Deep mutational scan, measured.
Amino acid sequence: VLKALERTRQLDIPDEKTMPVLMKLLEEAGGNWSYIKLDNYTALVDAIYSVED
């Protein structure tokens, strides 16, 4: 979780936006981090930006 938060902080995305999206992605992935961690957490960042749209 810390590495995911560090990555999104680099992009000026607050933890308050990151955590709900991260928890949803983890739930959808059955707790499997490998998809979320791919390409420096690209799936997480993309999911956060899609929620903002």
Rank of each mutant, 00 (worst) to 15 (best):
I48Q: 00
R9N: 04
L5T: 04
R9G: 05
P20M: 12
I36R: 00
R9Y: 02
L2S: 14
P20H: 10
L22G: 00
I48L: 09
P14G: 06
T18N: 02
P14I: 04
Y49F: 13
T42D: 08
V1Q: 07
E6F: 08
S34Y: 15
Y35S: 14
E27F: 10
R9T: 04
Y49I: 11
T18D: 02
K17V: 15
E52Q: 13
V51Q: 14
L38M: 14
I36L: 08
D46G: 08
L5S: 03
L26V: 05
L11P: 00
S34F: 15
L44P: 00
L25S: 01
Y49M: 15
K3R: 10
T18Q: 02
R7A: 10
L5A: 03
T8F: 06
D12V: 06
P14Y: 04
K17Q: 10
I36T: 01
L26I: 08
L44K: 01
M19L: 15
A4H: 04
L44N: 00
P14D: 07
N32R: 07
P14S: 09
K24N: 08
T18Y: 03
K37A: 15
D15P: 04
V21T: 06
S34R: 10
E27R: 08
Q10Y: 09
L11G: 03
L22P: 00
E28D: 11
N32K: 07
L5K: 01
V51Y: 14
G31F: 12
T42N: 14
A47C: 06
S50C: 09
V21Y: 04
L22A: 01
K3T: 09
R7W: 09
K17W: 09
K17H: 08
V21F: 05
E28H: 08
T8C: 14
D39Q: 08
E16C: 14
P20D: 09
T8W: 05
D53S: 14
Y49A: 11
A43T: 09
M19T: 04
R9S: 04
D39A: 08
K3I: 09
E52C: 12
E27Q: 11
G30C: 11
R7Y: 11
D39F: 08
W33F: 06
A4K: 03
N32D: 15
E27H: 11
V51F: 13
L26R: 00
I36F: 01
D53I: 14
I13W: 04
V51R: 10
K24H: 10
L26T: 00
G31E: 06
D46W: 08
L11A: 06
S50W: 09
A29Q: 13
D53M: 13
D39G: 10
N40T: 02
V1D: 05
I48T: 02
L22W: 00
Y41K: 00
D46E: 14
Y49L: 14
Q10R: 08
L2Q: 15
K17R: 12
L11Y: 06
A29E: 09
G30E: 12
Y41M: 03
A43H: 09
K24M: 10
K17D: 07
L38G: 09
Y41E: 00
L2Y: 08
G30F: 08
V45W: 05
D39K: 08
Y49G: 09
P20Y: 11
D12T: 07
A4W: 05
D46Q: 14
Y35I: 13
E6H: 08
S50Y: 10
N32P: 00
D53R: 14
Y49S: 09
L44F: 01
I36C: 01
P14V: 04
L11I: 05
D12G: 15
L11W: 05
M19H: 05
P14T: 06
Q10K: 10
V1K: 06
I13P: 01
R9W: 03
N40H: 07
K3Q: 15
L25Y: 04
E6C: 09
V51G: 13
D53K: 13
A47H: 06
D15G: 04
K37G: 13
D39W: 07
E28A: 13
L44C: 03
I13V: 06
E16Q: 09
S34P: 06
G31H: 09
L11N: 03
E52L: 13
E52M: 14
Y49T: 10
E16S: 12
Q10V: 08
V1P: 05
E28N: 09
L11F: 08
W33M: 05
M23L: 13
D53A: 15
K3A: 15
I36N: 00
D15V: 03
M23V: 10
K24C: 08
I13Y: 04
E6N: 07
V45F: 05
A29P: 02
T18E: 01
P14W: 05
D12W: 08
L2E: 15
Q10N: 08
I13T: 03
T8E: 02
D39T: 04
Y41F: 10
W33P: 03
Q10T: 07
L38F: 12
V45C: 02
D39I: 02
A4V: 06
V45A: 03
V45G: 00
M23H: 08
L25E: 03
R7F: 12
V51S: 15
I48M: 06
L26C: 04
L26Y: 03
L25G: 00
K17F: 10
G31Q: 07
W33I: 05
N32I: 07
Y41W: 12
K17Y: 08
N40Q: 07
E52T: 13
S50P: 05
L5H: 03
K24G: 07
T8A: 07
L38T: 09
Y41G: 01
W33Y: 03
M23P: 00
L22Q: 00
L44A: 01
P20I: 11
I48H: 00
A47K: 08
T18K: 02
E16T: 12
T42G: 13
P20A: 11
Y49R: 15
D53Q: 14
D53H: 14
L44W: 03
W33Q: 02
E27G: 09
A29C: 14
L38H: 13
K24D: 06
L25C: 04
T18M: 06
K17A: 09
R9D: 02
G31L: 06
I13D: 02
W33H: 04
K3H: 13
N32E: 10
V51C: 10
Y49E: 08
K37I: 15
M19C: 13
R7C: 09
L2T: 14
A43G: 07
A29F: 15
T8N: 01
N32G: 06
I36S: 00
E27P: 00
Y49N: 12
Q10D: 08
Y35E: 12
K24I: 06
K24L: 08
W33L: 04
T18L: 04
D39N: 14
D39E: 09
N32M: 06
D53F: 12
V45M: 07
L2N: 13
V1M: 12
S34Q: 14
N40Y: 06
L25N: 01
D12M: 14
G30M: 09
D46C: 14
T8L: 09
M19P: 00
W33K: 01
L11Q: 04
P14E: 07
L22N: 00
L26Q: 01
D15H: 03
I36E: 02
K24S: 08
T42Q: 15
N40S: 06
V21A: 07
S50I: 10
E27S: 11
I48P: 00
E27M: 10
M19D: 00
L38D: 11
Y35K: 13
R9A: 03
M19F: 10
D46I: 12
T42P: 01
L26P: 00
K24E: 05
R7L: 08
E16F: 11
E28Q: 12
T8S: 04
I13E: 02
A4G: 04
T8H: 02
W33S: 03
P20G: 09
L38Y: 12
